[in-house]
Amino acid sequence: MLEVKNIKYSYNADYQALKGVSLKIEKGEMVALLGKNGAGKSTLFLHLNGIYRPDEGQVFIDGEELKYDKKSLLKFRQKVGIVFQNPDDQIFAPTVEEDVAFGPLNLGLPMEEVQDRVEEALARVGMSGFEKTAPHHLSGGQKKRVAIAGILAMKPEIMVLDEPTAGLDPQGVVDLSILLNELNEEGITIVISTHEVDLVPNYAEKVFVLVDGLLIAEGTPKEIFAKPEILEQANLKVPIVTDLFQQLEREGFDMNGDYPLTIDEAKEKFLDLLNKN
């Protein structure tokens, strides 16, 4: 379980990025943090494993407060893995395998175990065979997968991904969704920041909406996307299928306030409407 209590953080005297954020994510959940660019998503994420230290407030992991001494930080950074938005910001080693091995080696694991984890993590993201490749010879999507492998190899309980679909091609987005769903089913808690509303209902059980350093709403995707005032404040839109059904309602179809969020739901609804008429 991950809990954030009333976190405030300022980059400088003029700019407070987080103005008191509290949220709670249960073990095994898969949640989305929605918000436009500059809302404070990345800043919040960097608090979750102690890279940033809040001016006020606390972070709890499994009920234990995050402390900022070396030993506690190592423990928490193993539990909470962050995948950076830009893989170029995360990958630094001269070869793929050395980069993936970096985290496990810092945990002080025996070499044998590190080798196993590197193999396993690379296989998991479909990058086996690239062990000796230099990261700068990879494509953007491949770099992303290596970045995820680097975190997987640390076997985190909670995985935090900052805009994971940014820069991926459509197939890459599908592959990533499948991987994240698999990991979630294996028990890893997953937190994703995004502004791609179409994808959110496919995976997220819970959604948080962050605007200008404040959490303005939380709930199921259904609840959040039914509140136009929230979406407007956050500079977001409803998923495209939802938009379609809202327009249909204006044409005289009765939706009973229940708009589909995903393609699957939309299909059901269509069949429903067709049968009625």
Binding site: Q90, F92, G103
Partner: peptide
């Protein structure tokens, strides 16, 4: 960011 990336993985 390099420092963050290193620290995040227990550097």
């Amino acid at each position: 960011t390099l420092q963050f990336a290193l620290d995040s993985r227990g550097y």
